[in-house]
């Protein structure tokens, strides 16, 4: 038998026997960041379409909720830092090659944009200003959503994450989770239907992106192929296929089109599954990436 054995005499915490630097905090932050990104895009879209004038519109409630959820996410991110008292160092520099630095500055722009959306959604201001702020929220939401994926894909040492598709994948996942949440919150019939239809489109696109993501991995080098195997017979197979793909994508994609056509009752089941699936996706990708390596 051909022998190929590597013994490493090192036992650094969080590094050995396998990388485990990020626990629950980062997946929760990435999920909430993506969800808020989706809420900014959808809420911004409503502002652009002049829904601020409708007293029942969900766009009145989205910005405050988004600020609360993003703050929770930021708290999770802060809890993950190991050298907390130096967190302010993020804002003494801009490191153009670091997605995390981009993210820190994007987050600093997101808060005032959400506050502006909160103020104009009260409906007393000029419609053209509401439209502008809606557009700003959509643009910043897209940046925020893509950044949550690029953050991981820029870490070249983990083959699973070496795909720029993680950016659009996390953006679409954020959009689908946000559409599901907004659908649950909406009281306006037209908005309810709009977001359920939109959610179906987001979920279908997300499914296509997942297929492309895996195609990229299996058509690349040995280490990328091994990374993909984590989901095809490896330790994350069940978690990924049951919770992310099955319950988070396929089941809602079956239920929601039927609900749109009034073939089944509108319930909270499908939107809740979409939201849970979005959270599961972040956990699975963050954990799997740490399991993948070049050696």
């Amino acid at each position: 038998m051909e022998l190929s054995e590597i013994t490493v005499h090192r036992m650094n915490p969080q590094i050995d026997p396998g990388l485990h630097v990020w626990g629950w905090e980062i997946p929760v932050y990435l999920f909430l960041g993506g969800l808020v990104a989706g809420m900014m895009i959808l809420g911004g879209h409503l502002l652009v379409r002049g829904h601020g004038r409708r007293p029942q519109s969900v766009c009145h409630r989205l910005p405050a909720l988004a600020i609360a959820l993003l703050s929770l996410g930021m708290l999770a991110l802060f809890l993950d830092l190991e050298h907390k008292r130096f967190v302010w160092r993020l804002y003494t520099t801009f490191e153009i090659t670091s997605p995390m630095s981009w993210g820190a500055w994007i987050l600093l722009l997101v808060y005032p944009a959400l506050v502006a959306a909160f103020l104009v959604a009260r409906g007393t201001l000029r419609p053209d200003l509401a439209r502008r702020i809606g557009q700003l929220n959509m643009a910043l939401g897209a940046l925020l959503g893509i950044y949550t994926g690029i953050l991981l894909s820029a870490l070249g040492a983990r083959p699973l994450w070496n795909s720029a598709l993680l950016g659009p994948l996390f953006l679409l996942s954020g959009l689908s989770s946000a559409a599901a949440l907004v659908h649950l919150l909406a009281r306006d019939r037209e908005e309810q239907t709009l977001f359920m239809k939109a959610d179906n489109a987001f979920l279908a696109t997300e499914l296509v992106l997942l297929v492309l993501f895996f195609l990229g991995l299996v058509s690349s080098t040995r280490v990328h192929l091994e990374a993909a195997r984590l989901f095809f017979g490896g330790p994350l197979t069940a978690l990924f296929w049951v919770f992310v793909v099955g319950l988070g994508l396929v089941v809602p994609l079956v239920i929601q089109p039927l609900a749109v056509r009034h073939r089944v009752a509108h319930t909270a089941v499908a939107p809740l599954l979409v939201i849970a699936g979005g959270l599961a996706l972040r956990f699975v990708i963050v954990y799997a990436g740490q399991m993948s390596h070049w050696r």
């Binding site: 090192r10 650094n12 590094i15 630097v21 993950d80 830092l81 190991e82 050298h83 907390k84 967190v87």
Partner: peptide, 22 residues
């Protein structure tokens, strides 16, 4: 350093660690 651990995750040699001081 803020201890974000991006550098630990980015190193293919796993050469870094977080010092007990953070």
């Amino acid at each position: 350093c803020i201890g974000c651990k991006a550098c630990l995750a980015s190193c293919p040699y796993d050469a870094r660690f977080i010092h007990p001081e953070g």
